[in-house]
Design a protein around this nucleic acid. Sequence first.
DNA 1: ATTTGCATGTAATCTGTTACATGATTCA
DNA 2: TGAATCATGTAACAGATTACATGCAAAT
Lengths: 179, 179
Amino acid sequence: MRTLKYAILGLMNQKQMTGYDLTKQFESTLNEFWHAKHSQIYPELKKLTEEGLIEYHTEISGSSLKKKVYSITENGKKDLHTWLLKSVPLTHTPKDEFRLKVFFFSNLKTEEELMHLQTQLSQHEDRLQHLRQNMKKFSNIPEKSTDEFGDYLVLLGAIMREETNCEWLKKCIELINCN
Amino acid sequence: MRTLKYAILGLMNQKQMTGYDLTKQFESTLNEFWHAKHSQIYPELKKLTEEGLIEYHTEISGSSLKKKVYSITENGKKDLHTWLLKSVPLTHTPKDEFRLKVFFFSNLKTEEELMHLQTQLSQHEDRLQHLRQNMKKFSNIPEKSTDEFGDYLVLLGAIMREETNCEWLKKCIELINCN
DNA sequence: ATTTGCATGTAATCTGTTACATGATTCA
DNA sequence: TGAATCATGTAACAGATTACATGCAAAT
């Protein structure tokens, strides 16, 4: 389905970028719903250039460091828009190794189960705190039709999701303690 | 990380099964946190047999239909238990094509955004209803240390997750309408 | 008889990760 | 001057999907 392609086109549609900039975006802003390593990004940029959806010019940083600054072409914008309009089929629930272990909990002792749950809970609480920190960049709800509005919506979703993860883990701990 | 391996060992530890039975389990019970197609399962069964973690005997259904009934070996049980004890690192938030589109919403018209959100919402509401239906098989909370208890915990988690998905989608619709 | 479900496999392809590999720039 | 960061790429491998391929059994 070439989803990485559209993630890149979408970002490039906001502003021109190098492969390195893209990599940073996947590590930060997009982190809650998409990610990719540079080893996947550079070959994809090459492919998109060959397909005429993006193009680049070379800039020199300092005295000799070359970087390729990519921007989206008209064809790229068309392709992105077509993808954005296409309806999204409900996909498989994502794979989750922790829940798989919980499913097989009957093979563990109660202390072992609680240890797993508590470790997981504290990790998710950290992530939740981090997300709430990110949310502070929005002093108020951004205007619809700005790039910030989409950013706000997905961040809101990420926070709600983490809150539920934490609630579920607490509920599991409670059920194990009171059974 | 060979997670499929452990999913299979875990199921095989509950009872002996054919590749076909496993495939059905991935489509039903495990569906909310793991899945695999038969084309991935059969080669894995072959590999696990070579590794001595499972073994099989052949049974005949009807007059000539052969099936391989697999069961876990002592080595397989040990390996499974080691995996169950190992702590689970917090993984990347799963990839989500729909949220990626929401992030790029500024490129769409309000009606197009609402159409996407409403379609997604009704699909998640259907899934939620289906999960609640599944929950009815538990007339009360299963005993800790039974296989059903793990099943109950993950189903509870799946329901909570879907409820939050629906809430988030409703919130997005509301924010778009009142902005 | 035909369709649906039971049952098992392989081949080609796509997607993604880890590791390998190199070199410039900036800041402490 | 050494470490962190900027910057770009390839190779090998692992994980997963789609399509190809076959045949029996049960129910309608």
